[in-house]
Design a protein around this nucleic acid. Structure first.
Length: 332
RNA sequence: GGACGGGUGGGUGAGUGGCUAAAACCAGCAGACUGUAAAUCUGCCGCUCCUUGCGGGCUACGGAGGUUCGAAUCCUCCCCCGUCCA
């Protein structure tokens, strides 16, 4: 239960950890399965939406068939009403990694959520957890006062982060103030104090970067497929099961549109259009984040493209120090 | 054939003589982001030149002319779209 002392094996030897980053629909899942299969590994999802039980189609969660090929972790670990944060992800992922280490299985991280990966690899500052009460108070207060109130408030407590955060960025302002109030220190100070980064693992990061136009095309096509393959039915079932309308996963891309459609507020073609657009923008934000990620070996294509997966395989073999046995003909 | 209404930058759409390369929104592009991150927020967004500046030049509001120191805005003719009347 203690968040930083997950079992502490005596000086664990560095173990490889494969990390696959890429935008949504770039083929991470397929590649992850292939790599896990080939190198005796297991897939560890790093995705803020796939943790929710029952939200399958719209989150492009690996199917039962895929999950039968190779074990998957950190999928379906929460009920829809539960709150989950980057810190929670880190704790859960550390447990999984330590389990895989003890069984000598290669972890293969499929990463859609950049913040979660960073939280795992680089750690988080030693800052207080979120407080729903405080947040509610802050937001209520912000609504009563003139615009810019939170920003001015933060400027008094922590001028440095106030300078960094935009006056309209309520989410980040609230967190910065929350930290000050709860910790009695500024978020700036806490960040300077450092973070506990992941030890005992050697990340091998690969990135999927198909051409933008191809990615967008695939996003559009995949949205249509999801609509045809039971997305509305899934949402209807969730509602019937009594899932609260304000449950977090209902605000994920697509779920809000499908709901609106089921409620007769949006016709199917327009719902699909809205989803495709939101997904494209999301993919773009992911790429902005991943481009900054250090030490990523980028591959220009989709993860399920056979030619490309051969390239990735031989790259990983090299990284793992295995003799290149593939028909691809390993060379340097 | 006649009567109205309308044609504005990738889209929607404001703008009725100078403060307009032209509001706003969308799309697009780029970026920030250490605990709700599929979230939240920021910048750019006609072309071009340079000594990158609240800088210069060019092009632009269906087309062609005209009025005016000055026009997306006024006038004339033409083309196209919508509605209505024949």
């Amino acid at each position: 239960m203690d968040e930083n002392s997950i079992v502490s094996p005596p000086a664990p030897a560095s173990m490889p950890l494969v990390v696959i980053v890429g935008a949504t629909a770039s083929g991470k899942s397929a590649l992850g399965i292939l790599l896990a299969q080939r190198f005796g590994g297991e897939v560890v999802s790093c995705d803020s939406t796939q943790v929710y039980r029952g939200f399958d189609v719209g989150t492009a969660k690996p199917t039962p068939k895929e999950r039968a090929i190779v074990p998957h972790h950190l999928l379906d670990i929460l009920e829809p009403h539960e709150v989950f944060t980057a810190g929670d992800y880190r704790r859960r992922a550390l447990e999984v990694l330590s389990d895989l280490r003890s069984r000598s299985r290669l972890p293969v991280l499929t990463v859609g959520t950049g913040l979660y990966l960073r939280a795992l690899l680089e750690g988080l500052a030693d800052a207080p957890l979120r407080s729903e009460e405080l947040r509610a108070r802050l937001r209520a207060r912000a609504e009563r006062r003139a615009p810019g109130h939170l920003h001015r408030l933060l400027a008094k407590m922590d001028p440095e982060s106030a300078a960094r955060i935009g006056p309209r960025d309520t989410s980040k302002l609230v967190r910065a103030i929350e930290v000050c109030v709860l910790a009695g220190k500024t978020i700036t100070e806490l960040h300077k104090a450092g973070r506990h980064r992941l030890e005992g693992f050697r990340p091998i990061k690969i990135g999927l970067m198909p051409a933008r136009a191809d990615l967008y095309e695939r996003i559009e096509q995949r949205t249509v497929e999801m609509m045809d393959h039971g997305w509305p039915k899934e949402v209807r079932a969730l509602i019937a099961r009594g899932t609260p309308a304000d449950a977090k996963p209902f605000s994920f891309i697509g779920y809000r549109e499908v709901r609106a459609h089921l409620e007769g507020k949006l016709d199917l073609p327009n719902a699909a259009k809205a989803i495709q657009q939101a997904t494209r923008r999301y993919a773009k934000r992911q790429l902005t984040w991943f481009r900054k990620e250090s030490d990523v070996r980028w591959f220009e294509g989709f993860g399920d493209d056979p030619a490309m997966s051969r390239e990735v395989l031989s790259h990983i073999e090299k990284e793992l120090g295995l003799a290149s046995t593939g028909a691809a003909g390993g060379s340097s």
